[in-house]
């Protein structure tokens, strides 16, 4: 009984504080960026396992470039651009190794994560002499944005206004990516290559080129995600900063069947449970372990992936049943 009352007390205090809602939005944004990056690669039938490493490397580069320019004024912005460029380069490298040198793309991703983990710590140690964080560098943060009219609305204003620039960008990019995938020529080609490479080749689309473009864009999203972590979420880079957010993005992408809108909902669901687990850390709990609560968002993703799999399987079965019944009616007609 006390477990239920404690769950109720966590939820009631969480949902009645405004910080909780801002926490949801801020923790959703980096995962959303990672998931969108995985989505465009997934639409071209490529699993970007290297997202974790790409985010790590670009997060570090953002800090280094920004601090080289003084960490104020234009510095963080140049850092952001550098992070995106590094993301693009790493995405391109993944495509080169996977499609030109013909290595299994999952193994390329694993190797990429290994290299980026090593390289980020190596670079950080070489430059700052510190092996865990870059707190000795002044790298600054990207500014928050207050929206003129919305900020005056009592409760919603404090939640929706005053968030980081990249947070807004992440949610805008959901729409942009939807438009890119479903309304442009490039999007059509990416989806065509993802559905059936040979069919796409037969109508004159270079699948190699399209997949490379998809992975470069995927890398750019990873770069934005990395910059969010080291320039918005925190103002420095540390070796455990990304903490599996790239992998969660990959899971959210699988759960949302690489569809930007559904992915956004999945990431928000993860963000809600992540915020609950973070929020409960500051509360005094007796019946529930706060450590076990940290596992909650990951368990939710696991359950979400299972539910999605059941849903797709049922849809497939229904489709097959439909085909079956059509066949039978045709047979009956033929008999008549």
């Amino acid at each position: 009984m006390s477990v239920f009352t404690e769950i109720w007390s966590i939820l009631s205090t969480a949902f009645s504080t405004t910080e909780f809602y801002t926490m949801i939005i801020e923790s959703t944004a980096p995962i959303l960026l990672a998931a969108l990056g995985c989505a465009i690669a997934a639409k071209a039938n490529a699993t970007n396992m290297g997202m974790e490493g790409i985010m790590m490397m670009s997060a570090l580069v953002a800090v280094l470039v920004s601090s080289a320019l003084g960490g104020a004024g234009v510095g963080p912005w140049v850092g952001l651009i550098a992070a995106v460029v590094v993301g693009c380069i790493l995405g391109f490298l993944v495509s080169v190794f996977a499609f030109r040198l013909k290595i299994d793309i999952i193994l390329v991703g694993i190797a990429m994560n290994l290299i980026c983990t090593g390289a980020s710590v190596f670079l950080m140690y070489s430059i700052t002499g510190d092996r865990t964080t870059t707190t000795s560098l002044i790298s600054g943060k990207l500014p928050s944005l207050s929206i003129p009219l919305i900020k005056d609305i009592p409760v919603i204003g404090t939640v929706l206004s005053g968030r980081f620039v990249l947070t807004y960008l992440a949610f805008i990019l959901v729409a942009v990516l939807s438009f890119l995938l479903f309304k442009t020529k490039l999007g059509l080609r990416i989806r065509a290559v993802g559905e059936n490479e040979n069919a796409a080749e037969s109508v004159g689309i270079s699948s190699l080129k399209i997949k490379t473009i998809a992975l470069i864009i995927s890398g750019a999203f990873g770069g934005l995600g990395g910059a969010f972590m080291s320039q918005c979420y925190l103002a420095y880079f540390s070796s455990g900063l990304i903490a599996g957010r790239g992998f969660i993005g990959l899971a959210a992408c699988t759960m949302g069947s690489a569809n930007p809108g559904i992915i956004c909902l999945c990431c928000l669901a993860f963000g809600i449970f992540y915020a609950i687990s973070m929020f409960s850390q500051s509360m005094k709990l007796f019946a529930i372990s706060s450590y076990a609560l940290l596992a909650l968002p990951y368990a939710i993703v696991l359950i979400g992936v299972v539910i999605y799999s059941i849903y797709t399987r049922n849809k497939e079965l229904e489709r097959l049943r439909g085909l079956d019944s059509e066949e039978k009616t045709e047979q009956n007609k033929a008999v008549e």
Binding site: A111, M112, L114, I115, T117, G118, A119, V121, F122, Y125, R131
Partner: peptide, 9 residues
């Protein structure tokens, strides 16, 4: 940590 780079390559 540089061995990770070497291993990956």
């Amino acid at each position: 940590e540089m061995t990770k780079i070497v291993e990956g390559v």
